[in-house]
């Protein structure tokens, strides 16, 4: 899986690259519009992450160019501009997703994976993690092939965990993923805790191993070890 990261802020681009590489993505980084244009004309990527404000151009142009070259490439716009018009414009000209800065790397990771899944030809609509199987179309979860009913938020949480397996996740990132960023409430962090508790209980009742590890003072990690 090849990903092109077009972001002029080198530190951020590096962080994104590090994070995604850990999950087996092959990341290439460019910092200017011109360099990005050259790259997309020469190589093909599964996913391109584009910053809208580049020093030598506006990222929208890249999105349009990409759409002409390869329709199957997934495009995610990242922008400091949270303007809804920008979001709509981005989606209209063919980007698949729009993320506003600042975002959590785990959120970007989850979005990239979901995008790649959707884009891959004859895309699998199943995610398997050891004994846990998720049917994405039916939004159903099976543990050892036994149906495991989860609430909407618990399902989202599990999917988020599996997309970010082996990554430590902060409570804030999880809360934001589940409730969006307009929950300006400290309580949401406690609710994250109770949701994780419920999810764990439901999975383990069906015989799944306990994959959710809490990291003291930071958050949680979903991993098998």
């Amino acid at each position: 899986m090849k990903i092109l990261i077009v972001e002029d802020e080198k530190g951020l681009s590096e962080s994104i690259s590090n994070h995604l590489s850990k999950d087996g993505f092959l990341c290439e980084r460019v910092f200017t519009y011109a360099a990005a244009e050259e790259k997309i004309n020469l190589y093909s990527y599964d996913c391109v992450i584009v910053d809208i404000n580049l020093p030598d151009g506006i990222g929208f142009g890249l999105v349009e160019a990409l759409k002409k070259i390869s329709a199957t490439t997934g495009i995610i716009i990242i922008s400091a501009r949270n303007a809804i018009e920008d979001k709509i414009k981005g989606l209209e000209i063919g980007s698949d997703d729009y993320l506003t800065k600042p975002f959590h790397l785990s959120e970007l990771n989850a979005r990239v994976k979901s995008l790649v899944r959707r884009k891959s030809f004859g895309g699998t609509n199943e995610i398997v993690f050891n004994e846990i199987k998720i049917n994405l179309n039916k939004r159903m979860v099976y543990v050892n092939d036994a149906e495991t009913p989860l609430s909407r938020k618990e399902y989202d949480l599990l999917l988020y965990f599996i997309s970010n397996k082996e990554h430590a996740l902060t409570k804030e990132a999880i809360a934001e993923h589940l409730w969006g960023d307009n929950i300006d409430s400290v309580d949401s962090l406690d609710i994250v805790y109770s949701h994780i508790k419920n999810l764990r209980r439901k999975l383990m009742e069906k015989g799944a191993k306990d994959y959710v590890h809490s990291i003291y003072g930071i958050g949680y990690k979903f991993e098998d070890h």
């Binding site: 951020l12 590090n18 850990k22 400091a80 600042p102 790397l105 430590a168 902060t170 990291i215």
Partner: peptide, 20 residues
Amino acid sequence: SHEMQTPVALINARVEELIQ
């Protein structure tokens, strides 16, 4: 506010890296 978004994004990203 706009200009602050990018550095904040960087801090957040680095923190996320660090906790790994």
